[in-house]
Structures are given as C-alpha cells and as structure tokens.
Simulated assay, not measured.
Amino acid sequence: MEFTALFLAVTVVMLVAWRGSRSLTLALSAVVLIACVATYLHHATDTLKLSF
C-alpha cells in the first residue's frame, strides 16, 4: 500500500513539475524523497523470520 502511495506521489510531483511552479516542485520532491527514505529504512530494518 505504501508503495502505491509513493508511486502516486511521484506522479503528482511530475505533473506539478510540468504545470506548476519550481518552488512547489522542489518542496514536493523533498517530501517524497524523505518518504521514500523512510519507507526504505522501515523495510531494511525488519528482522527476517527464517527457519532452516
């Protein structure tokens, strides 16, 4: 679900970059980048439950 939200957020940033102002695009890009890094860190720090 969060990956779908990130994909839609990136799509919105691209549409704003195409039609909107530069400062709004940079601000939204920074927010999306922080969200992507937070999602990565959330999944990278999960412990795997492996049974051999």
Score class of each variant (00 low, 15 high):
Ala30Leu: 13
Val16Cys: 02
Leu33Glu: 04
Val12Arg: 11
Ser29Val: 01
Ser21Met: 02
Phe52Tyr: 12
Phe7Ile: 11
Phe7Val: 10
Asp46Phe: 04
Ala30Ile: 08
Thr11Ala: 15
Leu26Lys: 06
Thr25Asn: 05
Ala44Tyr: 02
Ala38Leu: 05
His42Met: 09
Ala30Gln: 07
Leu6Phe: 02
Leu41Asn: 08
Trp18Ser: 14
Phe7Gly: 09
Val16Ser: 03
Val12Met: 10
Leu8Glu: 12
Ala5Pro: 01
Ala17Val: 03
Ala38Cys: 12
Phe3Cys: 01
Thr39His: 05
Thr25Ser: 09
Leu8Lys: 11
Lys49Thr: 07
Thr39Ser: 11
Thr47Leu: 04
His43Gln: 14
Leu50Arg: 12
Val32Tyr: 02
Cys36Asn: 10
Trp18Met: 13
Leu28Met: 05
Leu26Cys: 13
Val16Glu: 02
Asp46Arg: 11
Leu24Asn: 15
Thr4Ala: 10
Leu33Gly: 09
Val10Met: 10
Leu6Thr: 02
Ile34Pro: 01
Leu15Pro: 00
Leu50Tyr: 08
Tyr40Asn: 07
Val16Asp: 01
Val37Ser: 09
Trp18Asp: 11
Thr47Gly: 06
Thr45Cys: 03
Ser29Thr: 07
Leu26Met: 03
Leu33Lys: 05
Met14His: 10
Ala5Cys: 05
Leu28Glu: 00
Val32Gln: 00
Thr11Trp: 04
Leu28His: 00
Ser51His: 08
Ser23Cys: 14
Met14Arg: 09
Thr4Trp: 08
Cys36Asp: 04
Glu2Pro: 04
Tyr40Val: 11
Phe7Asp: 09
Ala44Ser: 15
Phe52His: 12
His42Ala: 10
Val32Lys: 03
His42Arg: 13
Leu41Cys: 09
Lys49Pro: 01
Ile34Leu: 15
Ala38Ser: 14
Thr25Lys: 00
Ala38Gly: 05
